[in-house]
């Protein structure tokens, strides 16, 4: 006999004056291989077309479907119901603006983040269409790719108590992004320039080492190691600045 799932979903539509924040319960018969992508769409099509949630690639590569599933921020599309008890609670990601029900505005958040970080390659060189590409070690390319794999799902922000307490905090995703550019020899920014962006209480020194980000990241980005690396690097730089400044004066 297949189970009947009890799915409790946070409901609130800010555009509907009659709507109040509440939890609503739905029942659904479990089928083999059922995941939350299929389950939620069935609920929408068969029971309640007003349900709001986000899916896009439905293959765990675009990051659209992050939500809090029984307390843990996760990608709904790759969450199988069979790994859960009969009762499944779904909440929108905390830390982002609510659009409705399970939808949050990650787009604006990440755009602002990338603008703040100036998360692009900075260089003085002009592109020469005639020239051969600059060489790079394959191992370095793979290292950069490893950090580039982040899908901006927002789970690490939703999981981080620091980010929840202090809204200005950049979070693991941003710090990892900076680590990616530090690694990249094509980005000609100096250490000082990176320091300017992340050497603050909103940046690396705001992180309290809670490691929920590391434990929750659905792409297993090596966040802990990047955070440690950055703090060490920025700390050493600050000490160097101090000594340098001493010498000069």
């Amino acid at each position: 006999m297949s189970r009947i799932l009890e799915i409790n979903i946070f409901r609130y539509n800010p555009e509907d004056p009659a709507s109040v924040p509440r939890m609503q319960t739905y029942y659904l018969e479990e089928t083999p291989n059922l995941n939350l992508f299929i389950a939620l769409n069935r609920l929408k099509e068969e029971q309640d077309p007003s349900l709001m949630f986000d899916f896009c690639c439905r293959a765990a590569i675009c990051g659209a479907c992050a939500m809090v599933i029984n307390g843990k921020p996760q990608l709904a599309c790759k969450t199988k119901t069979k790994d859960f008890p009969n009762q499944i609670n779904l909440m929108p990601l905390p830390g982002f603006k609510l659009i409705g029900d399970l939808c949050v505005d990650t787009g604006s958040w990440f755009r602002i983040m990338n603008e703040k970080l100036e998360a692009w390659v900075h260089t003085n060189k002009e592109f020469d269409p005639e020239a051969e590409e600059e060489r790079m070690e394959n191992s370095l390319a793979e290292q950069i790719y490893e950090l580039d794999r982040c899908i901006e799902c927002g789970c690490c922000i939703a999981a981080c108590a620091t980010a929840q307490m202090r809204s200005g905090f950049l979070g693991a995703v941003a710090l990892n992004r900076i680590a990616r550019f530090i690694l990249d020899p094509r980005d000609k920014r100096s250490e000082q320039q990176y320091f300017e962006i992340i050497g603050t209480d909103q940046g690396i020194f705001g992180c309290m080492g809670l490691l929920a980000c590391e434990d929750i990241c659905p792409k297993n980005i090596p966040l802990q190691d990047q955070l440690g690396y950055l703090r060490k690097k920025m700390g050493v730089l600050a000490v160097k600045n101090y000594l340098f400044w001493k010498k000069r004066s």
Partner: peptide, 14 residues
């Protein structure tokens, strides 16, 4: 915020 967050994700290091 911290309290509700800790309760929500129920994560040891937090």
């Amino acid at each position: 915020k911290f309290w509700s967050q800790a309760k929500m994700i129920n994560h040891q290091d937090t």
